[in-house]
Design a protein around this nucleic acid. Structure first.
Length: 587
RNA sequence: GCGUCCGUAGCUCAGUUGGAUAGAGUACUUGGCUUCGAACCAAGGUGUCGGGGGUUCGAAUCCCUCCGGGCGCACCA
């Protein structure tokens, strides 16, 4: 509708230019804006074009607006066009044009709201990508919910979407994990073990160790004396904790030989399986789990650095290998190969992004935690260095969620292993409330997640408010059958002009905004717009429900009203689906 | 210190590429079920949009500055 109105305005200006009433060069780079009005008194759409042109033309805005209106081609969908305010051109659609949305929704069903502005291009959305060193916690949950909705939104506007989880299985942390598991294994074997300050704790480590015990028996056992022989001093005893744990890892590799790899792999696969199951239960499914280690094994990391080297963006300093990121807008140069010869995480990430570009995606979305916001310039720097199109890469940031129980903050501590896991959260508040609450706020805003509110089955809870609207519509159709009344949809669509009540106008108007909201949400990577829209739609429906009867004796009116609420139900369902929330028929 | 995001009603937050009288929810008060689910609706008021300056027909929105917060500033990932 907006594009149609823009075209009408363009045509009007062209006519005026042809008649020499306006300068012809206006049309060249003219950004015609048409936006939906906030206030129904101002019609359905408005354009500020007259105010923008007032200077170039040398006319007063209201006079120019009137002139443009006089040149507008006729359009059957438009009831009237008026000048208002400082020079706005307000478009009032005919009622039948507004009500057409009802037929559109009913005809298209689940597809309603989709469009093809993505042109079938391919997009990759990488999200969650939490280190496989433990279960997902509530912070990861927001990235999961957000990324999943962004991916779904991109699909609705016509992208082919590939959802990917990047598994960081190549770093130091993974070795600390493997070592932590082994120490627990030794402990379960009856050894007296002092856990290093920097190792992973948490029951899941013990559980993995227990299974190793069952499977391998004593095979992984080694001498504890050799283990502790000549180790440096741990952090808690006044030494360097990092130095200590690294020495411990090295010792574990020494003593275990080939068995070390078995423990490492067991830790990795167990935790990834857990994360995967957790996410699937949460309604978040990936097309691909991409392993960082694969980039190392294939030689992609080495080749990527070599490529930058050939381009002259690599240099040696202090025994390390650096990428000259400052040449491309980053604030400092970055190490890619450490003094000890190992690649940094960033080096692997360069290879990973080259890989993504190499796969030919038209749009690349990296969802990151906001604590990584300093990382973006680094990635963009090497993309520039490699001569790649930086604009293809979008990096939305997700702020942390802070849990509350009523007014009191829930303390989270990863160190003690007593953090609140996503699984615990889902169990407590349910998947629907969790998914909705996570995306209810703008992604780059802090989220106060009130557990009590999310659990409450009351009007305070926006999830139930929306779901209740859906269930209520469903209930009406159950009543329809019980009362032996009928609903003829085709007949209803022919009688939409009977929907003349104010609540019906409001509801129709709201339905008409859905497609725009989806596009906006998708293009801006902001699913919270959908969440807010659904609350408005539910509100308009509830108000209508309380004001009017649907199951009236007048058959034509009944048909028409049932069409309207059926369309409402469909849009509620489509919107909730995008957010990963169920649309129950009863509650 | 530098970078970055943010500061909107008592609280939690929206506010579309700069638009018309800045909006929801919540809290508080009151009213509404013999008729489709009261997990609902209706009515009631609240703002120096953190302060100041600038850009213009027009600023919560863009620029500068100050105040106050979050996050980042590794040869960690």
């Amino acid at each position: 509708m907006q594009s149609k109105l823009k075209q009408l305005l363009f045509d009007a200006l062209a006519v005026l230019a042809a008649d020499a009433k306006l300068p012809a060069d206006l049309l060249v780079s003219l950004p015609i804006q048409v936006e939906r009005t906030r206030n129904p008194e101002h019609g359905d759409f408005a354009s500020n074009i007259a105010m923008l042109l007032t200077k170039d033309v040398g006319m007063r805005p209201r006079d120019l607006a009137a002139l443009i209106i006089s040149a507008l081609p006729a359009c059957a969908l438009i009831d009237q066009v008026l000048v208002a305010g400082a020079g706005f051109i307000n478009f009032y659609l005919t009622k039948s044009a507004q009500r057409k949305v009802i037929a559109d929704v009913l005809q298209l069903g689940e597809k309603y709201g989709c469009c093809d502005i993505g042109l079938g291009q391919s997009a990759i959305v990488e999200f969650v990508s939490s280190n496989p060193t433990g279960p997902l916690h509530v912070g990861h949950g927001r990235g999961a919910a957000y990324g999943a909705s962004v991916a779904d939104l991109l699909e609705t506007i016509g992208y082919k979407v590939h959802r990917e989880y990047y598994v960081n299985d190549a770093g130091r942390q993974m070795h600390i994990l493997a070592t932590s598991i082994w120490l627990r294994y030794l402990e379960l074997s009856g050894e007296d073990i002092a856990l290093p300050g920097n190792c992973y704790r948490g029951d899941y480590i013990i559980e993995i160790a227990r299974r190793l015990r069952v499977e391998y028996g004593e095979k992984l056992r080694r001498s504890v004396e050799l283990l502790y022989q000549d180790l440096p001093i741990d952090g808690k005893d006044g030494g360097d904790a990092d130095f200590y744990i690294d020495a411990m890892v090295a010792r574990a590799k020494d003593l275990l030989g080939d068995d070390y790899e078995a423990i490492f792999q067991r830790g990795l696969t167990t935790i990834i399986a857990d994360i995967r199951e957790d996410l699937e239960e949460f309604g978040v499914v990936f097309q691909e789990w991409f392993y960082e280690s694969a980039l190392h094994k294939s030689g992609d990391v080495a080749r990527s650095i070599a490529r930058l080297h050939e381009l002259g963006h690599i240099y040696e300093k202090d025994g390390a290998t650096w990428f000259r990121a400052t040449d491309f807008g980053d604030e400092k140069d970055r190490v890619v190969i450490r003094e000890n010869g190992q690649y940094t995480y960033f080096a692997a990430d360069i290879a990973y992004h080259l890989n993504k570009y190499g796969r030919g995606f038209d749009l690349i979305v990296d969802v990151l935690g906001s604590d990584h916001h300093g990382y973006a310039p680094r990635v963009q720097a090497f993309l520039k260095a490699a001569g790649l199109d930086v604009s293809k890469l979008i990096i939305p940031l997700v702020q942390f969620a802070i849990l509350y129980r009523g007014k009191t903050k829930v303390q989270m501590s990863t160190r003690s292993g007593e953090f609140v896991t996503l699984r615990e959260l889902r169990k407590e508040v349910g998947n629907d409330a969790a998914r909705f609450f996570y995306v209810m706020r703008k992604n780059d805003q802090h989220l106060d997640f009130d557990l009590d509110l999310a659990k409450s089955q009351s009007k305070d809870n926006p999830v139930y408010y929306i779901q209740y609207a859906h269930a209520r519509v469903c209930s009406v159709y159950r009543q329809l059958e019980e009362r032996n009344l009928d609903w003829d949809m085709t007949e209803g669509l022919l009688n939409l002009h009977l929907l003349a009540k104010e609540h019906e106008d409001v509801l129709v108007r709201c339905l008409g905004r859905y497609a725009e909201v989806l596009q906006q949400a998708a293009l801006k990577y902001e699913p919270h717009l959908v969440a807010h829209y659904l609350q408005e739609l539910a509100n308009d429906f509830h108000a209508y429900y309380n004001a009017e009867q649907f199951l009236v004796d007048d058959a034509k009116l009944r048909y028409a009203r049932l069409c309207l609420i059926a369309a409402t139900r469909q849009v509620l369902k489509n919107g909730l689906f995008l957010l990963g929330v169920s649309a129950p028929e009863t509650m």
